[in-house]
Design a protein around this nucleic acid. Structure first.
Lengths: 151, 151
DNA sequence: GGTGAAAGAGTTGACCT
DNA sequence: AGGTCAACTCTTTCACC
């Protein structure tokens, strides 16, 4: 399925502010409010838009420390096992299996360094994980879309 | 600043579906609609909630290829310069400066491998970038909150 | 933090271009 | 496929308790 220019501009407008009214979006891109709604409904039905979510400031929520953990698994570890294992940690914001030396990259938010270290140790202790390598985020420069299911 | 339990539950409810009405959220957590609104307003004023955004399915939008690019900058490159440089690429979903060998980690969505390669080459060609190292995402396992400014 | 009413926005359907 | 209109519903918002 291919989106046309209007669809992309609607998604972009919603990415900036998902609470914009259809009339507002219509004014931005040159459509009427009902036309915008019809397209948004179609995008949701097709699965291009999977939902609406809130954008939070991790620091304001008390999550001051962010980092990426590369995990190296033992042989024959299924992606599903990694997913199940990591889902248990509320500190894990995202995780993906990747090419290269590491098996997966995990994004973690923790309250502070102590907390981050604890999470790292607990993750590193998972039975299917052989070793980890982590970097801390110094400053987030840019963040745009959110993707995927709420999981 | 510390959020109490009610605030956390409100943020959680909004993270699942940012279009829930205040009345719905109130029913979930045991408050009236205006009480929920007052808390959400306060959370926004305090900066804990920085906005609302849409959750998209990259594949449905035609962004089938995802990857992380570590960038290694020349000496004395300001984070602001990196941010300005990367903002120009619509393919860049997020970017953060990090500790460790690399200076920043950049998350990129591209239509396909060809496209990803082009983006990688163009980013690697930025004057302040010395070299890059990239990994491709095989499968996204988990994705939760969105954080930070729309930028 | 609750209540209730006024104002605004979203939704829906019919019909037209 | 989009525009317009109108009627309806729901949410938001504000003053007040």
């Amino acid at each position: 399925m291919r989106l046309n220019d209007l669809d992309e501009r609607i998604v972009h407008a919603l990415a900036e502010d998902a609470r914009r009214s259809y009339a507002d979006i219509g004014a931005l891109i040159g459509l009427s409010a009902p036309a915008v709604k019809r397209r948004v409904d179609r995008l949701r039905a097709e699965g291009a838009i999977t939902g609406f979510t809130v954008r939070v400031d991790p620091a304001a929520l008390g999550w001051e420390t962010e980092g990426f953990i590369e995990i190296y698994c033992s042989r024959n570890t299924a992606p599903e096992a990694i997913k199940r294992g990591l889902s248990a940690y509320p500190e894990v914001a995202s995780a993906s299996t990747v090419t290269g030396e590491a098996d997966a990259i995990v994004q973690v938010f923790a309250a502070d360094m102590r907390h981050f270290e604890q999470v790292l140790e607990r993750i590193a202790g998972e039975p299917y994980i052989e070793r980890t390598k982590s970097v801390l985020v110094l400053s987030p420069l840019l963040r745009r879309y959110t993707s995927g299911p709420p999981a």
